[in-house]
Design a protein around this nucleic acid. Structure first.
Length: 256
DNA sequence: ATGCCTCAGCTCCTGAGA
């Protein structure tokens, strides 16, 4: 069984690339972030035609998340119960016995800004809820665009970007606190190439020069971890003509 | 060549992303 996450930066623009990618990578589950569309615009039929059922939670202009799966997701939840939010950032469902949470974490813009404060509150709300979800669903994956690097290995220029957004100690504290609930960084369970990033700025030829960040993550619960057999970033779609700035991350687990 | 993009929308500029 394969599960993947991809921030597509507008599903309207990227739908052909997502369908191409699914044809080449027939994963069982794919969560998408930054749909940037209202619910009425979601291309449910195109995904059905490709063999995927969908749950989606859209919003005008910004944010928006979806959960695609070959078998129907059950017990679907949108956003974080107990945390009031007017942005569409989280979609959750149970697929083949695994609790799948797809999330688009706030960007935060700049340390000290209102948006950074919101990011901190959102992270606190998420962690509180994930704790209860883990208790109810031991086999769980939390995947998406975290907008946080774990450490300097996730940063192309750790000196130049020290303390900047995605790299602050406050953000990394929250990421470690999530892990401390009983989650594991899927990518780092396996050998990876050096400078293994998932996002590259559109500007300054960021991808060509591999000036990127690893901010898209798949966290795997302790109960599910023994089943993990592979996890990696797929840089292929970043080479497309009009790519998303993010690349997909894929997790493979063996089914019992 | 130290290289400033891409998207949506109150669309030909602006705000946001990261």
């Amino acid at each position: 069984m394969k599960l993947a996450t991809w921030n597509v930066n507008s599903l309207s623009v990227r739908l052909p690339q997502v369908l191409d990618w699914l044809a080449a990578n027939p994963v069982d589950v794919l969560v998408l972030q930054e749909l940037k569309m209202t619910d009425d615009k979601f291309p449910a039929q195109a995904f059905l035609d490709a063999g995927y059922q969908a749950q989606w939670f859209g919003q005008k202009t910004y944010n928006g998340v979806a959960l695609l799966s070959r078998t129907a997701a059950t017990d679907v939840v949108k956003n974080i119960p107990g945390f009031d939010d007017d942005m569409a950032r989280v979609i959750t469902g149970t697929v083949d016995g695994i609790r799948v949470i797809g999330a688009y974490f706030p960007n935060g813009q700049e340390p000290g800004s209102d948006k950074f404060e919101y990011k901190m509150e959102w992270l606190t709300g998420l962690r509180s809820w994930i704790k209860t979800e883990l208790a109810a669903h031991p086999k769980l994956v939390l995947m998406g665009d975290y907008n946080i690097t774990f450490d300097d290995d996730d940063v192309w220029d750790p000196v130049g970007l020290e303390g900047s957004i995605h790299c602050t100690e406050e953000e990394r504290y929250h990421l470690r606190a999530l892990v401390a609930l009983g989650l594991h960084d899927g990518v780092r369970l396996f050998a990876q190439p050096p400078k293994n990033f998932s996002w590259w700025d559109y500007r300054d030829a960021g991808f060509r020069r591999n000036r990127g960040l690893r901010i898209d993550h798949i966290l795997i619960s302790t109960a599910l971890k023994p089943q993990a057999v592979a996890c990696s970033v797929d840089k292929t779609p970043r080479k497309n003509e009009r790519p998303s700035d993010h690349a997909p991350v894929i997790l493979e687990i063996k089914t019992l």
